[in-house]
Simulated scan of single mutants.
Amino acid sequence: MASTDIGRYTPWPLSVTCTDRGDGTLLIRVIGELDACVVSQFRAEVAGLVKAPVRVVELDLDGVRFCDAAGVRELLTLRHRAAQQQIMVALVAAHPAVQYVLGLVGQRAWLPGPGQR
């Protein structure tokens, strides 16, 4: 019987960009997959950004096509660590895949409101 090589899983590259709005607000845009393969990269890139004098972090996850349990845990950890520093993390946009998984874990209240992505 001949073996078939189905290939290796290659995660979608993760891209994290940051825009300082200059008023204590930071927009963090994430593109790619937020899963167990990349959460350490996400944590490393975001950790140095979420600190004083930032007061609000706007998190745009519209470009995140997949998010697993590790990704959700990292998002909730980010929100918790920010709150400990009196920094609010607002989810301003989320891909439907992210909205779905956040809904599954009881975080619908964190989803963007009507008129937002």
Rank of each mutant, 00 (worst) to 15 (best):
V50F: 11
S40Y: 04
L91K: 01
T77F: 12
S15D: 14
V39N: 11
S3A: 10
F42Y: 08
Y9P: 00
Q99R: 15
G103K: 04
R81I: 03
T4N: 07
Q85N: 05
R29Y: 06
Q116N: 05
R8G: 09
Q99W: 05
A82W: 01
V105Q: 07
C67D: 01
G32T: 13
A2L: 11
L59A: 03
A36W: 11
A2D: 07
C67Y: 00
I31M: 13
R21E: 10
V89Y: 02
A44R: 14
D5N: 09
L104Q: 11
D68Q: 09
A47V: 08
A97R: 06
A93W: 04
L26A: 03
L91W: 06
D62M: 09
D60M: 00
L102D: 06
E45D: 15
Q85F: 04
K51G: 10
R73N: 15
V46K: 07
I87F: 04
E33P: 08
D68V: 04
A47H: 12
D35L: 10
P11A: 10
V92L: 04
D60T: 02
C37A: 15
I87S: 13
L104A: 10
V101C: 01
V72A: 05
R117I: 11
D35G: 10
V16D: 02
F66K: 09
L104D: 04
P114T: 04
L49C: 00
G48Q: 01
L59N: 07
G106S: 07
T19P: 05
G115Q: 08
V54A: 14
A82S: 03
C67K: 03
D20G: 02
V89M: 05
I28S: 06
A44E: 13
G7I: 02
I87A: 05
V64W: 03
F42T: 02
E74P: 07
L27S: 12
Y100F: 15
V57H: 08
S40N: 12
A52P: 15
R29F: 06
E45N: 12
L76W: 05
A52M: 06
T10A: 14
I6R: 05
D20N: 06
V92A: 06
A36Y: 12
R81Q: 14
A83M: 13
R81Y: 07
I28G: 03
W110L: 15
Q41D: 15
W12T: 11
Q85A: 10
G106N: 10
Y9V: 11
S15H: 14
V30T: 06
L34C: 04
G103V: 06
V54D: 03
L78R: 00
A52L: 09
G63H: 01
L49H: 06
E33G: 13
L61S: 01
L26M: 02
I31P: 07
A97H: 06
A52D: 12
G7R: 00
A90P: 00
G113I: 00
T19E: 15
G115H: 08
H95Q: 07
V92E: 07
G106E: 10
P96M: 05
F66E: 09
G63Y: 00
G103F: 04
G71N: 08
L75A: 01
G22M: 02
P112K: 11
L111E: 13
V105S: 12
L34N: 04
V54R: 12
T25E: 00
K51N: 05
S15P: 12
V89K: 04
I31H: 14
K51Y: 00
V64L: 09
C18Y: 04
Q85R: 09
G7A: 03
G115N: 09
